[in-house]
Amino acid sequence: MNDKQAQDSIRDAFQHLRKVDRNAVPPISRLIINAEPNERSSWRLPAVTVGAIALAVIGLVAWLMPVNKPSIPVFSDTYDELLDPLTEMPTDFLLEIPGDRLASATPEFLTTLPDYLIPEDPQDVD
C-alpha cells in the first residue's frame, strides 16, 4: 500500500465514521437545559456536606479537649532564689574588689574589745 492509498483508506474510514456520528448527534437544547442542575449537584452538595461535617468534628474535639490553664508565676522573695547561679552578668566584674580573696583569708583576732561606755547624749557627760 503506497502513501496515496493509505491516505485514501484513512480518509474513507473517517468519512464513514463522520456520517454515522452525524445521525446520532444529540440536540443541543437538551445538553444546555440539563447542564446547570447536573453541574451544580455533581460537586457542590458533597463538598458542603464534607465541610460541615469537618467543622462539626473540629468543634467537638476542641470542646472535649482538656483545657490547659496558664500557670501563675510564683515570685520569690529572695534575690538569690531568683538569680540563676549559673548566670553571670556582664557587669559582674565591676563588683569585684581588689584583694577580696586575701581579705576573706585574714584571720580573726580572738580578743574582745572593752565595753566602753559611750553616752548617747553628749550633754549627759558631767
Binding site: D21, R22, V25, I28, L31, A35, E36, N38, E39
Partner: peptide, 28 residues
C-alpha cells in the same frame, strides 16, 4: 455542535454518555 460531538466522542474513547456529559460541561 455536530463537530463538537464527534470530537467529544473521540476524546471519550467513543463512549456516548461520557461524550454528552463532557459536551454539556463545556457548553456551561
Amino acid at each position: 455542535h455536530a463537530d463538537s460531538f464527534g470530537w467529544a466522542l473521540s476524546c471519550c474513547a467513543r463512549n456516548r454518555s461520557e461524550a454528552e456529559e463532557v459536551l454539556q460541561m463545556v457548553y456551561l
